[in-house]
Protein backbone atom coordinates (compact mmCIF):
# COMPACT_ATOMS: atom_id res chain seq x y z
CA UNK A 1 0.00 0.00 0.00
CA UNK A 2 2.76 2.42 1.01
CA UNK A 3 4.61 1.56 -2.18
CA UNK A 4 1.55 2.18 -4.34
CA UNK A 5 1.06 5.54 -2.72
CA UNK A 6 4.71 6.40 -3.24
CA UNK A 7 4.38 5.49 -6.91
CA UNK A 8 1.28 7.64 -7.30
CA UNK A 9 3.08 10.51 -5.62
CA UNK A 10 6.20 10.16 -7.76
CA UNK A 11 4.20 9.98 -10.96
CA UNK A 12 2.13 12.99 -9.93
CA UNK A 13 5.35 14.83 -9.05
CA UNK A 14 6.85 14.16 -12.48
CA UNK A 15 3.65 15.32 -14.14
CA UNK A 16 3.65 18.51 -12.09
CA UNK A 17 7.26 19.32 -12.95
CA UNK A 18 6.88 18.58 -16.65
CA UNK A 19 3.81 20.79 -16.82
CA UNK A 20 5.47 23.59 -14.89
CA UNK A 21 8.54 23.25 -17.13
CA UNK A 22 6.56 23.69 -20.33
CA UNK A 23 4.68 26.67 -18.89
CA UNK A 24 7.87 28.38 -17.72
CA UNK A 25 9.39 27.83 -21.15
CA UNK A 26 6.29 29.33 -22.71
CA UNK A 27 6.41 32.39 -20.46
CA UNK A 28 10.07 32.95 -21.32
CA UNK A 29 9.40 32.57 -25.05
CA UNK A 30 6.48 34.98 -24.83
CA UNK A 31 8.50 37.57 -22.89
CA UNK A 32 11.53 37.39 -25.16
CA UNK A 33 9.74 36.67 -28.44
CA UNK A 34 11.33 39.67 -30.21
CA UNK A 35 14.82 38.38 -29.31
CA UNK A 36 14.15 34.69 -29.92
CA UNK A 37 11.99 34.69 -33.02
CA UNK A 38 14.10 34.00 -36.13
CA UNK A 39 11.82 36.08 -38.37
CA UNK A 40 9.31 38.91 -38.26
CA UNK A 41 6.03 37.02 -37.60
CA UNK A 42 4.08 39.32 -39.92
CA UNK A 43 6.53 39.39 -42.82
CA UNK A 44 5.08 37.80 -45.93
CA UNK A 45 7.20 36.39 -48.68
CA UNK A 46 5.27 34.63 -51.39
CA UNK A 47 8.49 33.22 -52.85
CA UNK A 48 9.05 31.40 -49.57
CA UNK A 49 5.45 30.16 -49.23
CA UNK A 50 4.73 26.70 -47.80
CA UNK A 51 8.34 25.80 -47.06
CA UNK A 52 8.46 22.52 -45.14
CA UNK A 53 10.03 22.14 -41.66
CA UNK A 54 13.79 21.78 -41.28
CA UNK A 55 14.13 18.02 -41.62
CA UNK A 56 12.23 17.76 -44.91
CA UNK A 57 13.86 18.18 -48.29
CA UNK A 58 13.48 21.66 -49.74
CA UNK A 59 13.52 23.28 -46.29
CA UNK A 60 15.14 26.64 -45.62
CA UNK A 61 17.11 26.77 -42.31
CA UNK A 62 15.92 30.34 -41.83
CA UNK A 63 12.41 28.96 -41.32
CA UNK A 64 12.96 26.02 -38.93
CA UNK A 65 9.31 24.97 -38.71
CA UNK A 66 8.42 25.97 -42.27
CA UNK A 67 6.22 28.76 -43.58
CA UNK A 68 2.50 29.19 -44.20
CA UNK A 69 0.77 29.93 -47.52
CA UNK A 70 1.81 33.59 -47.30
CA UNK A 71 5.43 32.74 -46.55
CA UNK A 72 5.27 33.73 -42.89
CA UNK A 73 7.57 31.89 -40.47
CA UNK A 74 5.62 29.32 -38.45
CA UNK A 75 8.05 29.23 -35.49
CA UNK A 76 8.08 33.01 -35.08
CA UNK A 77 4.30 33.14 -35.27
CA UNK A 78 3.98 30.46 -32.60
CA UNK A 79 6.35 32.45 -30.37
CA UNK A 80 4.38 35.65 -30.79
CA UNK A 81 1.13 33.71 -30.51
CA UNK A 82 2.25 32.58 -27.04
CA UNK A 83 1.99 36.22 -25.96
CA UNK A 84 -1.69 36.39 -26.87
CA UNK A 85 -2.42 32.95 -25.40
CA UNK A 86 -0.72 33.73 -22.09
CA UNK A 87 -2.23 37.21 -21.81
CA UNK A 88 -5.70 35.78 -22.26
CA UNK A 89 -4.96 32.91 -19.87
CA UNK A 90 -3.67 35.19 -17.11
CA UNK A 91 -5.99 38.18 -17.38
CA UNK A 92 -9.20 36.38 -18.29
CA UNK A 93 -8.41 33.53 -15.90
CA UNK A 94 -7.79 35.77 -12.90
CA UNK A 95 -10.73 38.11 -13.58
CA UNK A 96 -13.11 35.17 -14.01
CA UNK A 97 -11.74 33.61 -10.85
CA UNK A 98 -12.15 36.75 -8.74
CA UNK A 99 -15.66 37.60 -9.95
CA UNK A 100 -16.96 34.04 -9.90
CA UNK A 101 -15.44 33.23 -6.51
CA UNK A 102 -16.77 36.38 -4.85
CA UNK A 103 -20.28 35.67 -6.15
CA UNK A 104 -19.98 32.03 -5.08
CA UNK A 105 -18.79 33.01 -1.59
CA UNK A 106 -21.62 35.50 -1.17
CA UNK A 107 -24.24 33.02 -2.38
CA UNK A 108 -22.90 30.15 -0.30
CA UNK A 109 -22.18 31.99 2.94
CA UNK A 110 -24.87 34.69 3.10
CA UNK A 111 -27.62 32.51 1.55
CA UNK A 112 -31.02 34.30 1.43
CA UNK A 113 -31.91 36.45 -1.56
CA UNK A 114 -28.34 36.90 -2.89
CA UNK A 115 -28.16 33.11 -3.14
CA UNK A 116 -31.53 32.93 -4.93
CA UNK A 117 -30.50 35.57 -7.46
CA UNK A 118 -27.02 34.15 -8.10
CA UNK A 119 -28.22 30.55 -8.32
CA UNK A 120 -30.99 31.47 -10.74
CA UNK A 121 -28.45 33.34 -12.90
CA UNK A 122 -26.17 30.31 -12.87
CA UNK A 123 -29.08 28.14 -14.07
CA UNK A 124 -29.78 30.53 -16.91
CA UNK A 125 -26.11 30.66 -17.86
CA UNK A 126 -25.90 26.87 -17.90
CA UNK A 127 -28.64 26.81 -20.55
CA UNK A 128 -26.47 28.71 -23.03
CA UNK A 129 -24.20 26.78 -25.37
CA UNK A 130 -20.91 28.38 -24.25
CA UNK A 131 -19.12 28.46 -27.61
CA UNK A 132 -22.10 30.05 -29.32
CA UNK A 133 -22.45 32.54 -26.46
CA UNK A 134 -18.81 33.61 -26.78
CA UNK A 135 -19.06 33.99 -30.55
CA UNK A 136 -22.21 36.05 -30.09
CA UNK A 137 -20.55 38.32 -27.54
CA UNK A 138 -17.54 38.92 -29.76
CA UNK A 139 -19.77 39.65 -32.75
CA UNK A 140 -21.57 42.25 -30.66
CA UNK A 141 -18.55 43.79 -28.90
CA UNK A 142 -16.18 43.65 -31.84
CA UNK A 143 -12.92 41.76 -32.05
CA UNK A 144 -9.86 42.48 -29.91
CA UNK A 145 -8.03 41.22 -26.85
CA UNK A 146 -10.34 43.15 -24.50
CA UNK A 147 -13.46 41.63 -26.03
CA UNK A 148 -12.08 38.10 -25.71
CA UNK A 149 -11.25 38.63 -22.07
CA UNK A 150 -14.70 40.06 -21.36
CA UNK A 151 -16.32 37.15 -23.21
CA UNK A 152 -14.41 34.58 -21.14
CA UNK A 153 -15.33 36.33 -17.89
CA UNK A 154 -18.99 36.74 -18.84
CA UNK A 155 -19.35 33.10 -19.83
CA UNK A 156 -17.21 31.27 -17.30
CA UNK A 157 -17.83 33.02 -13.98
CA UNK A 158 -20.42 30.30 -13.29
CA UNK A 159 -17.73 27.61 -13.13
CA UNK A 160 -16.31 29.29 -10.04
CA UNK A 161 -19.62 30.49 -8.62
CA UNK A 162 -21.16 27.00 -8.65
CA UNK A 163 -18.28 25.17 -7.01
CA UNK A 164 -17.29 27.88 -4.52
CA UNK A 165 -20.93 28.34 -3.49
CA UNK A 166 -21.16 24.67 -2.53
CA UNK A 167 -17.84 24.79 -0.67
CA UNK A 168 -18.71 28.01 1.14
CA UNK A 169 -22.00 26.46 2.19
CA UNK A 170 -20.35 23.44 3.76
CA UNK A 171 -17.66 25.59 5.40
CA UNK A 172 -20.32 27.98 6.70
CA UNK A 173 -21.98 25.11 8.56
CA UNK A 174 -18.83 24.30 10.52
CA UNK A 175 -18.15 25.06 14.16
CA UNK A 176 -15.27 27.45 13.67
CA UNK A 177 -17.51 29.72 11.62
CA UNK A 178 -20.24 29.56 14.22
CA UNK A 179 -17.81 30.51 16.96
CA UNK A 180 -16.53 33.42 14.88
CA UNK A 181 -20.12 34.58 14.46
CA UNK A 182 -20.83 34.30 18.17
CA UNK A 183 -17.83 36.49 18.91
CA UNK A 184 -19.73 39.27 17.16
CA UNK A 185 -17.58 39.79 14.09
CA UNK A 186 -18.99 41.21 10.87
CA UNK A 187 -20.19 38.49 8.50
CA UNK A 188 -18.29 39.99 5.56
CA UNK A 189 -15.03 39.90 7.49
CA UNK A 190 -15.71 36.28 8.52
CA UNK A 191 -16.27 35.44 4.86
CA UNK A 192 -12.89 36.87 3.89
CA UNK A 193 -10.81 35.75 6.85
CA UNK A 194 -12.39 32.37 7.73
CA UNK A 195 -14.18 30.98 4.67
CA UNK A 196 -11.94 32.25 1.89
CA UNK A 197 -8.68 30.66 3.14
CA UNK A 198 -10.45 27.31 3.41
CA UNK A 199 -11.82 27.34 -0.14
CA UNK A 200 -8.55 28.72 -1.54
CA UNK A 201 -7.19 25.30 -2.65
CA UNK A 202 -10.31 24.75 -4.75
CA UNK A 203 -10.02 28.25 -6.18
CA UNK A 204 -6.41 27.68 -7.22
CA UNK A 205 -7.25 24.40 -8.95
CA UNK A 206 -10.20 25.96 -10.76
CA UNK A 207 -8.00 28.89 -11.77
CA UNK A 208 -5.44 26.71 -13.55
CA UNK A 209 -8.25 24.88 -15.36
CA UNK A 210 -9.85 28.19 -16.30
CA UNK A 211 -6.57 29.44 -17.78
CA UNK A 212 -6.53 26.43 -20.07
CA UNK A 213 -10.13 27.05 -21.03
CA UNK A 214 -9.37 30.71 -21.77
CA UNK A 215 -6.57 29.70 -24.13
CA UNK A 216 -8.97 27.36 -25.92
CA UNK A 217 -11.68 30.01 -26.14
CA UNK A 218 -9.21 32.39 -27.75
CA UNK A 219 -8.18 29.68 -30.20
CA UNK A 220 -11.80 28.87 -31.06
CA UNK A 221 -12.62 32.54 -31.62
CA UNK A 222 -9.53 32.96 -33.80
CA UNK A 223 -10.58 29.83 -35.63
CA UNK A 224 -13.94 31.35 -36.57
CA UNK A 225 -12.10 34.55 -37.38
CA UNK A 226 -13.36 36.58 -34.47
CA UNK A 227 -10.28 37.05 -32.34
CA UNK A 228 -7.68 39.84 -32.33
CA UNK A 229 -7.26 40.67 -35.97
CA UNK A 230 -6.53 38.48 -38.94
CA UNK A 231 -2.93 39.68 -39.12
CA UNK A 232 -1.82 39.25 -35.53
CA UNK A 233 -0.29 35.87 -34.95
CA UNK A 234 -2.46 33.75 -32.66
CA UNK A 235 -2.43 29.98 -32.38
CA UNK A 236 -6.11 29.84 -33.29
CA UNK A 237 -5.72 31.83 -36.49
CA UNK A 238 -2.72 29.70 -37.44
CA UNK A 239 -4.82 26.59 -36.87
CA UNK A 240 -7.64 28.03 -38.97
CA UNK A 241 -5.16 28.71 -41.76
CA UNK A 242 -3.62 25.30 -41.35
CA UNK A 243 -7.00 23.61 -41.52
CA UNK A 244 -7.57 25.17 -44.95
CA UNK A 245 -4.19 24.18 -46.38
CA UNK A 246 -4.00 20.87 -44.56
CA UNK A 247 -3.38 18.79 -47.67
CA UNK A 248 -0.67 21.09 -49.00
CA UNK A 249 1.13 22.11 -45.80
CA UNK A 250 0.29 20.02 -42.73
CA UNK A 251 2.98 21.73 -40.62
CA UNK A 252 1.01 24.99 -40.54
CA UNK A 253 -1.60 23.13 -38.50
CA UNK A 254 0.57 20.67 -36.59
CA UNK A 255 3.00 22.99 -34.78
CA UNK A 256 0.53 25.50 -33.33
CA UNK A 257 -1.70 22.55 -32.46
CA UNK A 258 1.13 20.93 -30.50
CA UNK A 259 1.78 24.21 -28.68
CA UNK A 260 -1.90 24.58 -27.81
CA UNK A 261 -2.24 20.92 -26.81
CA UNK A 262 0.77 21.00 -24.48
CA UNK A 263 -0.31 24.28 -22.92
CA UNK A 264 -3.85 23.15 -22.17
CA UNK A 265 -2.61 19.77 -20.92
CA UNK A 266 0.05 21.39 -18.71
CA UNK A 267 -2.39 23.82 -17.15
CA UNK A 268 -4.84 21.08 -16.25
CA UNK A 269 -2.10 18.74 -15.01
CA UNK A 270 -0.76 21.60 -12.91
CA UNK A 271 -4.24 21.97 -11.44
CA UNK A 272 -4.46 18.23 -10.73
CA UNK A 273 -0.99 18.26 -9.17
CA UNK A 274 -1.84 21.22 -6.97
CA UNK A 275 -5.06 19.52 -5.94
CA UNK A 276 -3.07 16.53 -4.72
CA UNK A 277 -0.71 18.84 -2.84
CA UNK A 278 -3.64 20.50 -1.10
CA UNK A 279 -5.41 17.22 -0.42
CA UNK A 280 -4.59 16.36 3.21
CA UNK A 281 -5.27 12.65 2.60
CA UNK A 282 -2.65 12.34 -0.14
CA UNK A 283 -0.24 14.75 1.53
Amino acid sequence: MADARGLVKRRAGARLWLSAGWLVLLVLVALFAPLLAPQDPLMQDLFAARLPPFWASGADPNFPLGTDSLGRDVLSRIMYGARVALSVALIAGILTCVIGSVLGLIAGYFRGWPDVVISRLVDIWMAFPPVLFSILLIAVMGTGLGSIIIAVVVIDWTRFARVIRAEAMSQGAMDYVASAQVSGRKRFSIMLTEILPNVMPTIVVLLTLEMGIAVIVEAILSFVNLSISTDDPTWGSMIAEGRLSIHQAWWVLVFPLIALFLTVLSLSQLGEGLKDRFDPVLR
Binding site: I216, I239, R243, W250, L257, F261, V264, L265, S268, E272
Partner: peptide, 16 residues
Amino acid sequence: VALSVPDFLWGLVLIL
Protein backbone atom coordinates in the same frame (compact mmCIF):
# COMPACT_ATOMS: atom_id res chain seq x y z
CA VAL B 1 -5.08 13.29 -21.00
CA ALA B 2 -8.44 12.68 -22.69
CA LEU B 3 -10.17 14.61 -19.93
CA SER B 4 -7.93 17.64 -19.95
CA VAL B 5 -8.06 18.30 -23.67
CA PRO B 6 -11.34 19.64 -25.07
CA ASP B 7 -13.27 18.32 -28.08
CA PHE B 8 -12.04 21.13 -30.35
CA LEU B 9 -8.44 19.96 -30.06
CA TRP B 10 -9.37 16.29 -30.39
CA GLY B 11 -11.18 17.22 -33.58
CA LEU B 12 -8.02 18.78 -34.99
CA VAL B 13 -5.93 15.79 -33.93
CA LEU B 14 -8.39 13.40 -35.60
CA ILE B 15 -8.38 15.48 -38.79
CA LEU B 16 -4.60 15.16 -38.93
